[in-house]
Design a binder for these strands. Structure first.
Lengths: 206, 206
DNA sequence: TGCTTTCGCTACGAGTCGTAGCGTAATGGC
DNA sequence: GCCATTACGCTACGACTCGTAGCGAAAGCA
C-alpha cells in the first residue's frame, strides 16, 4: 500500500500485523467516536501500538482514514443476474449496504470534505476508492453490450465519458440518498433508481 | 432564523448586522482556511465581534457553517426555458456554479459528514438546505406535467417518492462529479446527465 | 431613570497536536 | 556470531484550540 523504500532489504521490517490492527482500530474508532472526535492517540491505544508508529506510516488523520475506508469497498462484486437492470440493482444494493455502516458513513464524507483543499488527498481517494471501483461500471457495461442491451461503443473517449457519467450518477445518487436525505437505499428505492437510469423519467413514470 | 424568545421585547436587541457579518466572515474563512482549520476565534476577528458573541448565537462550528452555507443555495431559481430538458439543464448549471465555489465545496461536505453522528444537525441541514431547495424539483415537475412532457400523477405518495428520487439523483450526481470525481460539471456534462435522466441509458447512447 | 439583555474583553483549565529523544527489538549482510 | 540498519515503544514537550466564566459598558424599552 505505501512502500517508501521499494527495495529496502535491510533493517527491521514493518509489522504487517500492525497495519491490519491499525486500520481495523481506525474503523472501530469511527464507529464509536465519529470523524471529528477520532484522535490518533486513541487509535494507537486501540490497535496496541505507539502513537509514533502511526505518524511513521501515515502523514495524518486524513490519509489513515482514507486507507481504512478504502478497504470497505473492496468487497464489492458484480453479480451476474442475467440482465443489466438486475446487475445494477445487485451492485447498488451492495454499495448501499456498505454505506449503511457507520464507519463508512462518517469516514467517507469527512475525507471527501478534507480533500476539497488537499490535492494530494484527492488523488489518494481517487486512486484507492473511486478508480478502483469504476471497474464495476466498466464490467457491467461490457456485459450489457455483449447481451445486446446496450449498443457497442467504438469511440474510446466517448466510452470513458459514459462510464464516468454513470459512475457519478449511481454513486452520487446512493450517497446522497443515504447520507444527505438520510433515508435507506432499500430494494424499492434501488428499483426506482434503476428504472430511471435505464428508461428515463418519462418512461419510468409510465 | 433562530429566535429563542419569540416574544422577547425587552432588553438590548441582537444586532442583525452582526449576523450578516458573522455569516459572511464564516464563508470567507472557509475560502481561506477550509473547514478543518476554521476556528470560531478567527471568524470572530474577521466579523469584528467578540468570540463569546458567536457562542451566544450558535451552539458550535457545525451549526454556524450550516447557516452560512445554506444562504448560498437560496439564489437558485428555476428558469422557464420552454422544455423540461432545458429547465433541468438550467438549474443544474446554477447548482454546479455554486458547488464550484470553495466556500460551498469545503463547507457542505464537512457538515454532512458531521451530521452522520448528530441527529439535530441532520435535521438542521434538511430544513435549511435540502427541503428548502426541493421546491425546484416540485415546480419543474409540475411545469413539465402542464406541458404534457410528464404524465400527471394523482397519487400524492407516489409523487413524493418520485420527487425524492429525482432530487437525490440530480443533486447527488452533481455533487459526486464536482467533489469526488473532482471534475467540472460543465455544459457538456450536464447535457449528458439530462439526456440519461430523461431518456435512459439505452436511448441516450443511441 | 430603572430594568433587561446583549456586547466586548480577559482569563482560564482542559484537551489535542505533532515531534524529539532515547533505549530496545528484529531483520539482513558479512 | 557480530554489525549496520530500520522499526518500535515510551516519555516529555511547546504550541495551539476549545468552550466557559466573570465583569463592566452599551442599547434598547417602560
Amino acid at each position: 500500500m505505501q512502500r517508501r523504500h521499494p527495495a529496502s532489504r535491510t533493517g527491521r521490517p514493518r509489522s504487517a500485523a500492525a497495519d491490519t490492527a491499525i486500520l481495523a482500530a481506525t474503523r472501530q474508532a469511527l464507529v464509536d467516536l465519529g470523524w471529528s472526535k477520532l484522535t490518533l492517540s486513541d487509535v494507537a491505544v486501540r490497535a496496541g501500538v505507539a502513537k509514533t508508529t502511526l505518524y511513521r506510516r501515515w502523514a495524518g488523520k486524513n490519509e489513515l482514514v482514507v486507507d481504512a475506508v478504502a478497504e470497505l469497498f473492496d468487497e464489492l462484486t458484480l453479480p451476474d443476474r442475467g440482465s443489466l437492470a438486475a446487475d445494477i440493482e445487485g451492485v447498488v444494493l451492495q454499495f448501499a449496504a456498505i454505506l449503511a455502516r457507520p464507519e463508512a458513513r462518517s469516514g467517507l464524507m469527512a475525507v471527501v470534505a478534507e480533500a476539497t483543499r488537499d490535492e494530494a488527498l484527492r488523488e489518494r481517494i481517487r486512486a484507492s476508492i473511486v478508480d478502483r471501483q469504476k471497474r464495476l461500471v466498466i464490467a457491467g457495461r461490457a456485459r450489457a453490450q455483449e447481451r445486446g442491451e446496450l449498443p457497442p461503443e467504438s469511440d474510446t473517449e466517448r466510452s470513458a465519458r459514459a462510464v464516468d457519467l454513470i459512475f457519478d450518477m449511481v454513486a452520487g445518487s446512493v450517497v446522497h440518498r443515504t447520507l444527505v436525505s438520510n433515508q435507506p437505499a432499500d430494494a424499492e428505492w434501488v428499483h426506482g433508481l434503476t428504472r430511471v437510469l435505464l428508461s428515463g423519467l418519462a418512461a419510468s413514470a409510465r
